[in-house]
C-alpha cells in the first residue's frame, strides 16, 4: 500500500457567480520514501493540491470530492480534532513564505520549543533542546540561532529554520510548496543538497511543489506535470524529463534555456492558461497544443499507463 493515495480528487472553489475547478479528477500514488516533484505553471492547481491534502482550504468556499488515503485513512473524512493531531506530526508542509510566519517578538528557540510541546506536552526541557539542536545540525544552522530573533537571520537561514521546524516531529510526509523559490541560486542549491542528504537517514517521503523543473531534475525521483488542474504526465524523472511524451511537457522543457551545450532557440508555449470556470469536454491543453488533432477537441484523453509507472494523458500517444 502506498503511503499517500489520491483518488479522483476534485477541488472546486465556489464564488457567487461561478465555480472554479482548480483540481480535476486527480489520482496519484506516493510510495513511502519517494521524492516526488509536482511541476506546473501558476494556476495549474499545484498549491491547491497541497492545501487540499492537509485540508487547509476554507470549508465554506471549497468543495472537495474524491479520496485522499494516508496510510489507508481517508483524510477527507477525519474530524478536525484528529486532523490536528495528524498535521505536523505525520504530514508537515513548508510554504514559500513560511519564514514570514515566525513570530517577530519571540526567539527562534522559544518558538520551536512551543511547537514541539503541542504534540509532545510531557517532555523535559533538556529533551526539547536536544531535539532542536539536532535539527539545527541537520539543516546546517549554528547553535547560536537558538537565541536569535527572526529579524536577525537572513532569508535563507529563516527558510532553514522553517524546514527544521517542519521536521520536528519526524513526519512521514513532507510537502515543500515552492519552499526554495524565493532564495538565491547558491542558497537554494545548498538547501536542496541538505534535504537530500537528510532523507537518507530518515523515513521521509517528500513532495516538492515548484514551477522550476531544474529543481525537480536535481532533487527528485519522480515528477508529475500538472496543467489546468489535471495530471498530464507522471513518471520517473529520467524518463519524463529526457523523453517527454506529452506535448505540454515537451513545450515546458523547450522553454528552459540550457547553460551548457549547444545554444538552441527558445520556444515558449503560445496562448495563456485555461479558464478553469468552464467545463472542458476536450483535452484541456488542446487549444495551445501544436500537435492537436480533431480528436483532441472532442474527447477528454484517458490516462494511458506505460511501463515503469509512466502515465500520460494524451490522445496522440504512440501515433504522432
Amino acid at each position: 500500500m502506498a503511503l499517500l493515495e489520491i483518488k479522483n480528487l476534485n477541488i472546486t472553489y465556489k464564488t457567487d457567480k461561478k465555480e472554479i475547478k482548480a483540481v480535476k479528477d486527480f489520482s496519484l500514488d506516493v510510495e513511502a520514501k519517494d521524492s516526488i516533484g509536482i511541476v506546473g505553471e501558476s494556476g495549474s492547481g499545484k498549491s491547491t493540491l497541497a492545501m487540499g491534502i492537509l485540508k487547509l482550504l476554507p470549508k465554506e468556499t471549497t468543495k472537495i470530492t474524491g479520496k485522499i488515503l494516508f496510510n489507508g485513512v481517508d483524510l477527507l473524512k477525519l474530524s478536525e480534532e484528529k486532523l490536528r493531531n495528524l498535521r505536523w506530526r505525520d504530514i508537515s508542509v513548508v510554504f514559500q513564505k513560511s519564514m514570514n510566519s515566525l513570530s517577530p517578538v519571540h526567539k527562534i528557540g522559544f518558538q520551536m520549543e512551543d511547537i514541539y510541546r503541542v504534540h509532545e506536552p510531557n517532555v523535559s526541557d533538556e529533551e526539547v533542546r536536544k531535539r532542536i539542536l539536532e535539527l539545527f545540525k541537520f539543516v546546517n544552522l549554528s547553535d547560536r540561532v537558538y537565541t536569535l530573533y527572526p529579524h536577525e537571520l537572513s532569508g535563507g537561514m529563516m527558510q532553514r529554520v522553517s524546514i527544521a521546524l517542519s521536521l520536528i516531529h519526524y513526519p512521514k510526509l513532507l510537502i515543500l510548496d515552492e519552499a526554495t523559490t524565493a532564495l538565491d541560486v547558491v542558497t537554494q542549491g545548498q538547501i536542496l543538497d541538505e534535504i537530500m542528504k537528510l532523507e537518507e537517514g530518515l523515513d521521509l517521503t517528500r513532495m516538492m511543489i515548484t514551477h522550476d523543473i531544474s529543481v525537480v531534475a536535481s532533487s527528485c525521483k519522480k515528477v508529475v506535470v500538472m496543467y489546468g488542474g489535471c495530471l498530464l504526465e507522471s513518471g520517473y524523472v529520467q524518463d519524463v524529463l529526457i523523453n517527454p511524451k506529452h506535448p505540454y511537457t515537451q513545450g515546458l522543457l523547450d522553454s528552459f534555456p540550457a547553460l551548457t551545450g549547444e545554444k538552441k532557440n527558445l520556444r515558449g508555449i503560445p496562448g495563456s492558461i485555461p479558464d478553469l470556470s468552464l467545463e472542458y469536454k476536450s483535452c484541456i491543453f488542446a487549444n495551445r497544443c501544436k500537435k492537436a488533432r480533431d480528436i483532441c477537441f472532442k474527447k477528454v484523453p484517458e490516462t494511458k499507463i506505460l511501463p515503469n509507472e509512466w502515465n500520460v494523458a494524451c490522445h496522440l500517444l504512440g501515433g504522432f
Partner: peptide, 20 residues
C-alpha cells in the same frame, strides 16, 4: 550551483560558507 533540467547531468556543486 545552477540546476539543470537534465536529471543525468550531475554537477559537483562548489560549496560556499555562510550566507550572502
Amino acid at each position: 550551483n545552477c540546476a539543470s533540467i537534465d536529471p543525468f547531468e550531475k554537477k559537483d556543486k562548489i560549496k560556499v560558507k555562510g550566507e550572502p
